[in-house]
């Protein structure tokens, strides 16, 4: 009886795993199809849709834009988050510091849809819709909480004796920062940067609201293409994104950071 239930349970687990992975598997299978319409089971094998995706030019520019945006937004967020963490770390537990901390992570609490609407209205009035500066401001805002949270943990852990020792030995504040404080922050900055990059690169909703033609990112370009054409070119681009996601996941697992992925959102 017990073995029967165990078997049933394991079967259920396999089915649920298949359900979780099914959309990724189907997209990858379709991308190698030799027909322009979806058929199941898959027939033939070709790379033609990957070639077509590359040659269409509809995706290369958005892809480069997404990458650059993710890197620059993460960099800006780090430059703003590092001093904020250093300023707040000694006041952890105070009421006003708690309120400031909440303000700084609030982009996590407000649904992306509402941030999208707010920024659409805001940038419309400033005449900044579909501009690089608006995209950068929005992405910096969205990735900031991840950077801040990650660096703050490292910043709170720094023992003040190290800094005092550095000061007593005559180091300037800048030297103390560079040689004593910064190395302590580095792990937090690294994991913060990885998550900031992922959040920006995957961002869809806000980008859809505040871009039109010139500044669309890769997920938005893919969404538009799905509605306009919907051939395996979309599957080829999607498969590239699946591959990219899996490589990121492997890298995160190697770094021991994958368990933090579920805590995002």
């Amino acid at each position: 009886m017990s073995t029967f239930f165990r078997l049933l349970f394991n079967l259920l687990v396999v089915v649920i795993y298949l359900y979780l992975l099914a959309p990724l598997i189907v997209v990858v299978l379709f991308s190698f199809s030799d027909r322009s319409f979806f058929s199941f089971p898959p027939t033939g094998f070709s790379f033609q849709w990957y070639v077509a995706a590359w040659q269409s030019g509809a995706f290369t520019e958005p892809a480069i834009r997404s990458l650059v945006l993710a890197v620059v937004a993460s960099l800006f967020a780090a430059v703003l988050a590092i001093p904020a963490c250093l300023g707040l770390r000694r006041y952890k537990g105070r009421r006003w510091a708690g309120l400031l901390e909440f303000l700084l992570i609030s982009p996590l609490v407000v649904p992306a849809l509402i941030i999208g609407i707010a920024l659409l209205y805001f940038f419309l009035r400033l005449n900044l819709i579909d501009t690089w500066i608006a995209m950068l401001a929005a992405h910096t805002l969205l990735v900031f909480p991840f950077m801040f949270r990650s660096i703050f943990v490292s910043a709170v852990g720094i023992q003040s004796q190290y800094e005092e020792a550095s000061e007593i030995l005559g180091a300037s504040p800048w030297t103390t920062f560079r040689n004593v404080v910064f190395p302590f922050l580095l792990p937090g900055i690294t994991s913060g940067a990885i998550f900031a990059f992922i959040i920006s690169f995957d961002q869809f909703t806000v980008s859809l609201f505040i871009s039109q033609v010139d500044q669309i990112t890769l997920p938005v370009a893919l969404y538009r293409y799905l509605y306009d054409v919907n051939d395996p070119v979309a599957a080829a681009v999607s498969s590239a994104l699946v591959g990219f996601g899996l490589i990121l996941a492997i890298a995160l697992q190697r770094l021991g950071l994958l368990r933090h992925v579920g805590g995002q959102a």
Binding site: L20, A22, P23, F204, L222, L226, G245, L246, L258
Partner: peptide
């Protein structure tokens, strides 16, 4: 197993939803 659960989170939601359209 952990990888199989968490990895889909790193694939864009547009892509995953497109997979469901195909299914």
């Amino acid at each position: 197993l952990f990888f199989l659960v968490a990895a889909p989170l790193l694939v864009n939601t547009v892509v995953r939803t497109y997979g469901w359209l195909l299914i």
